[in-house]
Computed example of a mutant assay.
Amino acid sequence: MKSVIAAIALIAAAPASASTDERAAILRVVADMQAAWNRGDFRGYMAGFKNPDVVFVSGGKFQDGWQGTLDHYVRDYGASPDTRGTLRFYDMKVDLLAPDAAMLIGRYHLARPKRAMEGVNTRLFRKFGGRWFITMNHVSAYEIVPRK
């Protein structure tokens, strides 16, 4: 309990500009990931995740770590711009939990000619060596069925 109270005191004592700067840094990580995906740079996209310790949860299952997730993206999305689609993250809310921990919850849309998808990401960020990385990524996704 004392450690929780100490963490709350640290957060409360931090200047507002520090929290604004930290939130901006986290949102930059996500913006860089979005840009990397949209240019077909899956390794650049994965740079936002803590390698190799990241935990991915999607489709009700734990995924196969950092490398397995990279392999999945290259195999299942990397054939062409049409299969990769255009990714957009939006409605993102960042909660700073501690000086080195934050949670982001937001939406995403993956526009593709076939199998467009939308969903929600919940991401735990941790700060290592002055940089923010995603250490846990949970995706709740659904396919957008085209209207006929």
Rank of each mutant, 00 (worst) to 15 (best):
Ile134Met: 07
Arg131Ile: 04
Met117Lys: 06
Asp82Ile: 01
Gln67Ser: 13
Lys50Ala: 10
Val139Gly: 10
Tyr45Asn: 12
Tyr90Asp: 07
Tyr45Val: 08
Ala98Ser: 15
Ala14Gly: 13
Gln63His: 07
Arg123Phe: 09
Val54Glu: 00
Ser58Gln: 12
Arg115Ile: 00
Lys93Leu: 07
Thr122Gln: 08
Ser80Ala: 11
Asp82Gly: 01
Trp37Leu: 05
Phe56Ser: 04
Asp32Ala: 15
Gln67Tyr: 06
Asp71Ser: 13
Glu143Pro: 08
Glu143Asn: 09
Ile5Thr: 12
Pro99Val: 00
Val4Met: 08
Thr86Cys: 05
Trp66Leu: 02
Asp91Ile: 02
Phe128Pro: 02
Tyr142Thr: 12
Phe49Lys: 09
Gly68Asn: 02
Arg84Gly: 07
Thr86Ile: 13
Thr122Arg: 03
Met136Pro: 00
Pro15Cys: 08
Ile11Thr: 14
Met92Pro: 00
Asp32Tyr: 12
Val57Thr: 14
Ile5Asp: 13
Tyr73Gly: 05
Thr83Leu: 09
Arg115Thr: 10
Gly119Trp: 01
Leu10Gly: 06
Arg28Leu: 04
Trp37Tyr: 04
Ser3Met: 08
Glu143Tyr: 14
Ile105His: 03
Arg131Gln: 11
Val55Met: 01
Arg84Ala: 03
Lys50Gln: 03
Ala36Gly: 10
Val54Ile: 14
Leu70Ile: 05
Glu22Tyr: 00
His138Leu: 04
